[in-house]
Write a protein that binds this DNA or RNA. Structure first.
Lengths: 337, 337
DNA sequence: CTGAAAGCGCTTACAG
DNA sequence: CTGAAAGCGCTTACAG
């Protein structure tokens, strides 16, 4: 396995020019099939490895995409975005790009510090995974490399965005509860916290409206403070027959809370979640929930950013990818069917 | 924010040469402090961003490290290595390097296909996270870029390795059980599966030996097949008073198994794990377990590979990083103290 | 079908 | 303290 074999070395061995080698190895026009074949064989034999750096320099493209995840989403157990990143990395690889993960520290986010990979021109574009502060978004909007936001959106920013269809996911889930006879349905989540939670809440609300069911403020339970930190869930005096939770982890916490108060799920109260992450599976009973289509979202986001790289003029777009309901055992049927 | 500002542009503006700009921006000798200061200001003002690509090409260094995780370790809930990767990415960033994640598909592993990032010279070195097949290790040993293996080792390979101190972790954990009066202690894990599990088993065995306790084969429970896939745990006729599990997930599964058989933990049988991952926290009762020091291991591995990059002659070394026991509620005290 | 020339944006000697 | 020259390994546009 030769170490630093270059196109010039192959050229010298074959008595041709390095231009010809370049053409042959890139399957371009202008080399006879015979010679092309020969060149590929010799390249293989000499252990030639293509030097992306040189190509990159020539083209001004690094063939890397930065993937930014705010630190607070990477805590002890919150692995959703890390899992997301894994899928993105794969899709990127299929397009001959690489993904460089950057965990955005709270400090850098607060002080509007851009990641080093941007300043060093190591990346051609940025994928932002998870809601960040509006100030930081404004900062990002001023830089010239393409950016695609994933899993949240900001109504002020005219930016490319790939989100899961929170609204219709929870809307359909709430319909499902109502179809099963539930009339008093609560919602758990800080509806001022993120746009995702807001949309999920609105999907829930739309379902209530459509079925002429009242929105009972006592049934709207806050689950986190403004920094996204979970707080203790305060239960209302009288329980609804079901709770729609903004995510599985909160549903899991809610079940524990209900159990500690002597209630059984779903016998005394039904609980549904969102995400279909590990909490949906370890909850007892297992959660009926909405599964986010991470793969489709990854594909969409990567296609978006690569097409923006190819033609800078492309208009921005917002894509929402449908999830699907996963039926398990956390919902009790109240009516006859 | 200028787009393609180069050193030459700054040089032109100031009427000096680009060599001087390079020296000033890199804080090298040979530029007066005054000029250096001025250059930095103008660079900032013009929105100059350093082009790593050019530097990389000159030096033949990409300033990227590939991080390889075998696909089978990235399943639905197995996020341990992903979490590991996150720490590695951070430490790398502190050294001005970037980490590029590559999930090694089972197919590529079986067919000895090296990742594209290697063939494209996108990375200067490789960090291998999690046990891979011996064939693949042999393949890796033949390539010329530095490699550091993390969280497992292969006795055949004279390779740089960073592992958690499995042996002493389980050894101390077993001592802890014995100190609490346990004399019949089982072990759960396929001891032919990975070197980590083997070492954990040996730590357990050493503790038994030291305390003159017999090794009862009926108490050694297999937990996975040769591909690492979990299998149903077969319980012995008569239970020991405690089980040492090779990881938290298996401990979690074991508790469920015991519960389904009508046994309570720790009242009827104590259970301890290893890793202190999410399974240790969601288990009921919470697990007494050994915590792997991911941060320290990440730092060590990154330092190792960067020092190998700097001096290729460095001899290989194997570092084992101590974990520490986390005491929770899954162990019953059998004796008076 | 094949190749000589120029250039991508830096850095490293070396000369002044 | 400052700079002209050469080179890292490719690719592009042009000429033959």
């Amino acid at each position: 396995m030769g170490n630093n074999v270059t196109m010039r070395d192959i050229a010298a061995r074959l008595g041709v020019s390095s231009v010809t080698i370049s053409k042959a190895l890139n399957d371009k026009e202008g080399v006879s099939d015979e010679l092309k074949q020969k060149i590929k064989e010799v390249a293989e034999e000499m252990g030639y490895r293509f030097n992306t750096l040189a190509k990159s320099m020539k083209e001004g493209q690094a063939y890397n995409i930065g993937v930014i995840i705010p630190e607070r989403f990477t805590g002890e157990i919150q692995s959703f975005y890390l899992k997301f990143y894994q899928h993105i990395a794969r899709v990127l690889d299929q397009h001959q790009y690489s993904g460089i993960l950057h965990i955005l520290s709270s400090e850098d986010e607060d002080h509007n510090v851009l990641p080093r990979i941007y300043y060093d021109k190591k990346v051609d574009g940025l994928l932002i995974l998870g809601q960040i502060s509006n100030d930081y978004i404004n900062l990002l909007n001023r830089i010239e490399i393409p950016i695609v936001y994933i899993d949240f959106y900001n109504e002020d920013a005219e930016a490319d965005t790939v989100i899961t269809d929170n609204f219709s996911g929870v809307y359909e889930m709430t319909n499902h509860l109502i179809k099963n006879g539930h009339k008093e349905i609560g919602f758990v989540g800080n509806i001022y916290s993120t746009s995702s939670i807001q949309d999920r809440f609105l999907g829930y609300y739309k379902s209530l409206l459509e079925h002429k069911l009242p929105l009972n403020q006592a049934y709207i339970i806050n689950d986190r403070d403004d920094r996204g930190k979970y707080i203790d869930l305060e239960m209302p005096e009288k329980l609804p027959t079901a709770f729609v939770c903004n995510c599985d982890q909160i549903a899991y916490n809610l079940i524990n809370k209900l159990n500690s108060l002597g209630y059984r799920v779903p016998e005394d109260c039904s609980v549904v979640g969102f995400d279909n992450d590990i909490y949906a599976q370890i909850a007892e009973p297992k959660l009926t929930t909405v599964e986010v289509d991470i793969e489709e979202m990854s594909r969409t986001a990567v296609n978006l950013i690569i097409s923006k790289l190819k033609s800078k003029q492309k208009k921005w777009e917002q894509v929402s990818v449908k999830g699907k309901i996963v039926y398990r055992n956390s919902v009790k049927q109240l009516n006859e069917s």
